[in-house]
């Protein structure tokens, strides 16, 4: 199925999401077009991860109003794996360790049948995974190793939209550059006849933006997207005045 280049890849409309009895998202509207990389800023506990997990389809995130369209398809009722096969990928902040499943096995599963040995070797070399590849996935991995492992799986999976949850957290400086490089590779990869890929990066420090170019920034505040603008300007503003002032400021293009 080819996607009309004019239509947005992801459309979030008036989204309300509750976790347990608590309403976390209170009417989120977000549009990501093909080839765009967006950044989601906001204070801890503001609902950034909730938005990501709701798009991914994790249980426990209850949509009480609004909808999410991906390539024009309403995601309501679709299982996590169906959404993944539709083209949504996610790099988790703290992925679980899975005993007995080797990283190599998971990369292969993510890549599918067309992911051949050359592609595997390329991913392993690019992310220097040689010493991790035959280990149980995430078992005893350091923060940086965990992120490199996530990137390897996603490069293999090649999603049209990749969601990154705090890609810089727990990662030392050496690894941030490697992770940033992998993110750029993921987001800028050309897909023949399919346009370029898109991304949504959740960050509360903005540090990762020194390594990845993003087009549009948003501030998720109090369950809503309160502010939209150039990601670097937003981060500067937040750095100077904090989130409370930021959502009222002039650079916001809302």
């Amino acid at each position: 199925m080819s996607v009309d280049s004019a239509s947005p890849l992801l459309q979030v409309e008036g989204l309300h999401v509750s976790v347990g009895d608590r309403e976390i998202l209170r009417g989120v509207d977000l549009v990501i077009a093909e080839g765009e990389t967006h950044v989601l800023l906001g204070p801890n506990g503001g609902g950034k991860t909730t938005l990501l997990n709701t798009i991914v389809g994790l249980p426990g995130y209850r949509v009480t109003a609004g909808r999410i369209l991906f390539k024009g398809t309403d995601l309501a009722g679709l299982e996590i794996d169906e959404r993944a096969r539709l083209g949504i990928g996610v790099a988790f902040q703290r992925p679980p360790a899975v005993r007995g499943i080797k990283l190599k096995q998971l990369i292969q599963v993510a890549g599918g049948d067309s992911f051949d040995e050359a592609a595997m070797a390329d991913v392993i070399g690019g992310l220097t995974l040689e010493r991790m590849i035959d280990r149980d996935v995430n078992m005893g991995f350091s923060g940086g190793e965990m992120k490199r492992s996530e990137m390897a799986q996603l490069i293999a999976q090649a999603p049209d939209l990749t969601l990154f949850d705090e890609p810089e957290s727990g990662v030392d400086l050496d690894n941030i550059a490697v992770v940033g490089g992998a993110m750029t590779r993921l987001l800028k990869a050309e897909r023949v006849g399919k346009g370029t890929r898109s991304g949504l990066i959740v960050t509360h420090t903005g540090h990762i933006l020194e390594y990845v170019n993003a087009d549009i920034g948003h501030v998720l505040y109090n369950g809503r997207l309160a502010c939209k603008g150039n990601p670097r300007d937003l981060i500067d503003e937040i750095g100077k005045h904090g989130y409370d002032k930021c959502v009222e400021c002039a650079i916001c293009q809302m």
Binding site: E79, I80, D81, A84, V98, V109, A110, G112, Q153
Partner: peptide, 8 residues
């Protein structure tokens, strides 16, 4: 869920 998020 982790494996499902990779399309399994």
């Amino acid at each position: 869920y982790y494996l499902m998020s990779r399309g399994v």
